[in-house]
Computed example of a mutant assay.
Amino acid sequence: MQWLPFLVLALSSLSSGGLLRFQCSQLVVQRLDPLVDPGLVPSSHVHQIVGGNSFNATMDPKKDMPGESTCTTCSFSEDFSNYWTAVLYFRARNGTYKRVPQKTQIDGGVGGITVYYMTDALYDTTQKSKVTAFKTGFRMFVGDVNARTKQAVSNFRQLTYTCMKDSGTRAPESLEFPNQPCPFGIMANVRFPTCWDGVNLDSPDHMSHMSYPANGTFESQGPCPASHPVHTPQVLFEVVWDTKQFNNKADWPTDGSQPFTWAFGDATGYASHADYVFGWKGDALQRLMDTSCVVNCPAANPKTQSNAKMNACTQKAVVKEDVDGWMPSLPGGHMAKYS
């Protein structure tokens, strides 16, 4: 991205804590969701998954994920975590649906996610906070798949969209899908909570063991609430959906509504959500967060891998169905809805 070299120059001489920014190529696209629909094959809607190749329908928390995986699609070869989001679809004027591809910065890649781990806000050149890395078995979810109004998503303002004019566009951000064609694509931004209760690696809703700051925000260095006193890294996903091929308004719905919908039928954008299952090997993440480093963190001697190895780590879909062609309805029978 265009701003990255300047960010690196600014932070490399000033930072005292870790800021990781790295790519993960696509592992698989299919209807599996071991957090929301554990053991259900297929799950309710299509996801795109990146990370370790031990991803499965149940993801037993008692198992050692790094030990279970034999490869990872992420550039840090010790990161066998899994990161996933719903898939975006285009709804044409004739009512059919087509999957929107993702842009990737990985040579030879077919999709993926840009992942950040931060001790402080992205543009904070000090990166001075101390954080506690997640533990083996940790997992979390953020968002509300049933949200269809701005009020319903008010607790998740950290889930936003950016209508990109070019590769460097990062503002403005909105809670709903952009209602105009975006020249470069639509970026979906997902910011997970940063305060942990210090006890539970998960919770029934996969959210209650985590919290946003008691007041203020992560960016303003708001304090963690007493109920969730442990400061963890901020995990941020950037997913760039390549919407350019769908920017002809003659193909958009005749009522003038924007044409994009999540795989589960949300056409408002308010129901954006994402899942995270921790899988870093040993103390690799804590070591990186404790070291003055930026992006690839050479001072911490991280183990990285080539784009070719990232792309070679793939998984065959367990659910055999068409998720890419023009379809009369979304996989799982969903239809685009605005309420």
Rank of each mutant, 00 (worst) to 15 (best):
W3E: 14
L4Y: 03
V8L: 10
L11Y: 02
R21S: 14
R21P: 01
F22C: 11
S25A: 15
Q26G: 10
V29A: 11
D33T: 02
V36R: 14
D37G: 03
L40C: 00
V41S: 07
V41C: 03
S43T: 10
V50Q: 08
V50R: 02
N56Q: 06
K62W: 00
K62E: 11
K62R: 09
D64C: 13
M65F: 15
P66I: 11
E68I: 09
C71N: 01
T73A: 14
T73Q: 07
T73E: 10
C74K: 01
F76W: 06
S77Q: 11
S81W: 06
Y83Q: 03
Y89G: 04
F90T: 00
F90I: 02
F90M: 02
R93N: 04
R93C: 00
T96K: 05
T96F: 00
R99S: 06
V100K: 03
P101E: 01
Q102E: 14
Q102F: 03
T104V: 03
Q105R: 13
D107C: 05
D107N: 10
G109W: 09
V110E: 13
Y116N: 12
M118D: 09
L122A: 05
D124R: 09
D124E: 06
K128E: 14
S129D: 12
V131H: 07
T132M: 07
F134C: 04
K135F: 06
F138A: 14
F141K: 11
D144G: 11
V145L: 12
T149S: 14
K150A: 15
A152E: 14
V153T: 15
F156A: 01
M164S: 12
D166G: 07
S167E: 15
A171Q: 01
P172V: 13
E173S: 13
E176R: 12
P178Y: 15
N179K: 15
C182A: 08
F184N: 12
I186G: 04
V190C: 05
F192V: 06
F192Y: 13
W196H: 14
W196G: 14
G198C: 13
D205V: 00
H206P: 04
M207E: 15
Y212E: 08
Y212F: 15
P213W: 11
A214D: 12
G216F: 11
F218Y: 08
Q221W: 10
Q221G: 14
G222C: 07
P223H: 13
C224P: 10
P233Q: 01
Q234V: 00
V235K: 02
L236C: 03
F237M: 02
W241A: 09
D242F: 00
D242G: 00
D242K: 00
Q245I: 09
N248D: 15
D251F: 12
D255T: 05
D255F: 12
S257H: 05
P259Q: 02
F264L: 08
G269K: 07
S272H: 04
G279M: 05
G279N: 03
W280Y: 02
W280T: 01
L285V: 06
L288C: 05
M289W: 00
D290Y: 01
T291P: 05
P298Q: 08
P298F: 01
A300D: 03
N301V: 13
N301E: 10
T304H: 01
Q305K: 05
A308N: 10
M310S: 09
N311G: 02
T314R: 14
Q315M: 14
A317E: 03
K320Y: 04
D322C: 11
V323E: 03
P328E: 04
G332D: 07
H334T: 01
K337I: 08
S339T: 12
